[in-house]
Simulated scan of single mutants.
Amino acid sequence: MAGSLPLEVALKSPADKFWAAIRDSTELFPKIFPDQYKSIKVVEGDGKSVGSIRVIDYAEGMPVSYSKEKIKVADDATKKVTYAVVDGDILSFYKVFEATLQVVLSADAKSSVAKWDIHYEKANPDVPEPNLIQDLASKTFKALDDHVMGAA
Score class of each variant (00 low, 15 high):
Ser49Met: 09
Ala152Tyr: 01
Trp116Val: 15
Leu28Asn: 03
Phe33His: 08
Ser111Cys: 11
Arg23Ala: 15
Ile22Gln: 11
Asp108Asn: 02
Gly61Trp: 04
Tyr94Cys: 07
Lys31Leu: 14
Ile90Tyr: 02
Ser39Trp: 04
Glu60Met: 07
Asp46Phe: 08
Lys115Trp: 07
Ser112Met: 09
Val113Glu: 04
Arg54Pro: 01
Pro6Asp: 05
Leu11Phe: 03
Val85Pro: 08
Asp87Met: 03
Glu98Leu: 12
Gln36Arg: 03
Met62Ile: 10
Leu136Gln: 05
Leu11His: 01
Lys41Trp: 06
Arg54Phe: 08
Ala143Glu: 15
Asp24Arg: 06
Ala143Asp: 15
Val64His: 00
Val148Asn: 01
Ile56Ala: 11
Lys48Asp: 10
Ser4Asp: 10
Ala99Ser: 15
Ala137Arg: 00
Ser49Trp: 05
Thr26Gly: 03
Leu136Tyr: 09
Glu27Phe: 07
Ala59Asn: 06
Val55Cys: 14
Val81His: 01
Phe18Val: 13
Ala152Gln: 08
Leu28Phe: 04
Gly45His: 07
Asp126Asn: 09
Phe141Cys: 13
Thr26Asp: 12
Ser106Cys: 08
Gly45Asn: 12
Ala2Glu: 14
Ser65Ala: 13
Glu44Ala: 14
Ser39Ile: 08
Asp89Arg: 01
Val86Lys: 02
Ser106Glu: 06
Ser111Thr: 15
Asn131Ile: 13
Lys12Trp: 09
Lys41Asn: 14
Asn124Trp: 05
Phe33Arg: 02
Asp89Asn: 00
Tyr66Gln: 12
Ile53Asn: 01
Ala123Met: 12
Ile90Phe: 05
Ile22Asp: 08
Asp16Gly: 02
Gly47His: 04
Met62Asn: 05
Ile40Cys: 03
Val96Ala: 03
Asp75Gly: 04
Val103Glu: 00
Pro128His: 01
Leu28Ile: 10
Leu144Phe: 04
Ser138Gly: 09
Ala107Glu: 15
Ile32Gly: 02
Tyr58Arg: 02
Arg54Gln: 13
Asp126Arg: 02
Ser4Gln: 14
Gly51Asn: 01
Trp19Lys: 00
Gly51Tyr: 00
Val64Phe: 04
Leu5Asp: 09
